[in-house]
Design a protein around this nucleic acid. Structure first.
Lengths: 345, 345
DNA sequence: ATCAGATTTGGGAGCGCTCCCACACCACTG
DNA sequence: CAGTGGTGTGGGAGCGCTCCCAAATCTGAT
């Protein structure tokens, strides 16, 4: 025979039923108050709120999730293949933005690192299991099918960055091309005549955009197209080092380099030092990301800053809107970038 | 009149009941299989597993959480007051360790940043609401009451680092004193005769331990106690810069400095450069943390490495054990540190 | 063959909430 | 004064699972 103890939580915590009893109303009414329904009279609402405060009631999330079929959680997915993402402030900036935006909701942030392909599958399954209401994807590669998979499940998804110019999945990106163009215009404006670039991996859309920004600035300045001023990197310091050596071999007289990432700029700087070139006198250097590396390079690195925290906030806001209203249009936003001038240029 | 459709999930996903029907067993049996109970015959288990695979069944977490009164989630709490924690790889290393350890459980990691005191209260309430099974606390200050509060609620808690020598809450720490001692012994072993130290904030236990390591090494080497070789910092680059200037004013002839954090070493290096001292020829420098800053300093910084990822793994393993068995002893572990030698010493 | 004891199994009850139907109550209208 | 159309409100049903009791089945010793 079940002991009747309506409304007493199993570990002593008050339940909604207890609140209802205390306020002298029904369960439904308390639920309405908690969920901010307008269909409650002011008198009743006040009584319920008082009861909630008295009892120190906190809704039981699992019960809510089960009954309402939503989890009150969103996932932030980081493909950690990009260890880079971690070392740099990019990732933490995104987290900061996301959690700032989540701060006055009761939505939880689940952090999910995906390393192995196995984990990728696993997460897709996990997401299929009603465990998150939406997904934020960070730094997705050009050929990653995960965004489409998730979107196909009907799960709201927002990415940072695009995979291509025609990105089907909603995204919040920054103006990679514009930033790169600013950087190169800055170098040219400082009187540099032979400006090279070290690119990111060309299978990444962001890297291609930065290259286009470089090319556009050169074109506007009336510089003839010159493939010898272009060296491929992959965003890593090592690749920057190698690319810089190659560039100097080809064009010993170059006097400016736009690097598509800060670590590559660090590598380039090392190569320059080894070959006896000074920065910025012989060669001016500009990076991209405005990471802490930039500030600590010697000389401090001029770099293109992305509004990382803002991107985090924006994508979160957009995701929440989509969760609220499945019909809502997903974001397709490109936020501005700016040049932070330091001693290296 | 309710439509009878036993075992069909509301959004088409199979339920436990459906699996049971398919396998020709009862709900309880399926539940036992899922939860790895030994009280199931091999034949039955195989049948259930086949049904699970056929149907692509994934347990509904909210339902589990509600019924079993556990959330299958743990929180990693970061008092972001320490922005430092973010910029450095410490934090990401911990995350990496934690999530590696969580990888083959179905436990989710909730990341919680606490900035304002308001959020601190909020989290305590949140944690009280059965939403997490345990809490990992990162980089807690000496006077933070949160660990005790959580522990008092009966919630399993593990911290990185201690708040004092007599830490009541379970922790996983690293050998700060030993690491510092190694660093200073190294400097002395390289023939440096006048070795100073720049300390961290003395309200942090880790900082005090590092100072003790310095003092112990000096004592063992038979150096007379000399307070003029000791300058206070607060782990930031600026404080390192100021402290270094002060030290040089007091002891122009010093030839070695142990800095209790890498950013302080960067600051010290800047001060040394400004005063025309070379590193390592005039003054040898050692840092603590072995962050990426260390590798990128010029010259690359010798630094004490903590097994960060290992700490993350260890604390997670310990937390899971405590969640499993509330009576289990919490960890009180101090992991070894090691010296990474580079060009600065 | 028989039965105590161990092993395996089925399924009722219930976790704490939301959803939604039904009903009470309140103006107003004609 | 009956009728109409709001508002507010109560509470049954049910979300998908786990827990646990009791029943069924299977040992192996007598």
């Amino acid at each position: 025979m079940a002991v009747v103890r309506r409304g007493v939580g199993r570990d002593g915590r008050p339940t909604l039923e207890q609140v209802a009893a205390r306020a002298g109303v029904g369960r439904g009414t308390v639920s309405r108050v908690i969920n901010g329904s307008p269909r409650v009279s002011d008198r009743t609402r006040a009584a319920v709120e008082a009861a909630i405060a008295d009892l120190g009631y906190v809704p039981h999330q699992a019960a809510r999730a089960l009954a309402a079929n939503r989890s009150n959680a969103i996932a932030l997915v980081v493909p950690e293949v990009e260890a880079r993402v971690f070392a740099e402030p990019f990732f933490s900036g995104i987290i900061r933005g996301v959690s700032a935006e989540l701060a006055d909701t009761d939505i939880q942030l689940l952090l999910t690192l995906i390393r192995a392909p196995r984990e990728r599958t696993r997460f897709a399954q996990y997401a299929a299991g009603n465990r998150v209401d939406g997904v934020l994807l960070v730094s997705v590669h050009g050929d990653d099918p995960l965004p489409d998979q998730l979107a196909a499940m009907g799960l709201p998804v927002v990415m940072t960055g695009r995979r291509s110019a025609r990105e089907p999945v909603p995204y919040v990106d920054c103006d990679n091309q514009g930033g790169a163009q600013l950087a190169v215009e800055h170098l040219l404006g400082r009187g540099r005549t032979t400006v090279a670039t070290i690119t990111g991996p060309t299978d990444m859309y962001a890297a291609r955009c930065r290259l286009e920004g470089y090319q556009e600035a050169m074109r506007v300045a009336g510089k003839p197209h010159d493939d010898e001023l272009l060296a491929l990197g992959d965003f890593t310091e090592e690749s920057g080092y190698a690319a810089m050596k190659e560039l100097l071999r080809r064009r010993p007289a170059l006097d400016g380099v736009f690097c598509a990432s800060d670590p590559m700029a660090i590598g380039a700087r090392r190569a320059l030092r080894e070959l006896g070139r000074t920065v910025p006198d012989d060669v001016a250097l500009v990076g991209f990301d405005d990471s802490s590396l930039a500030r600590h390079m010697d000389p401090a690195l001029t770099s293109v800053r992305q509004p990382i925290e803002g991107m985090g906030r924006t994508m979160t806001r957009a995701l929440l809107r989509q969760i609220d209203d499945r019909e809502a249009e997903g974001p397709r936003l490109v936020l501005p970038t700016e040049l932070v001038r330091r001693a290296s240029s």
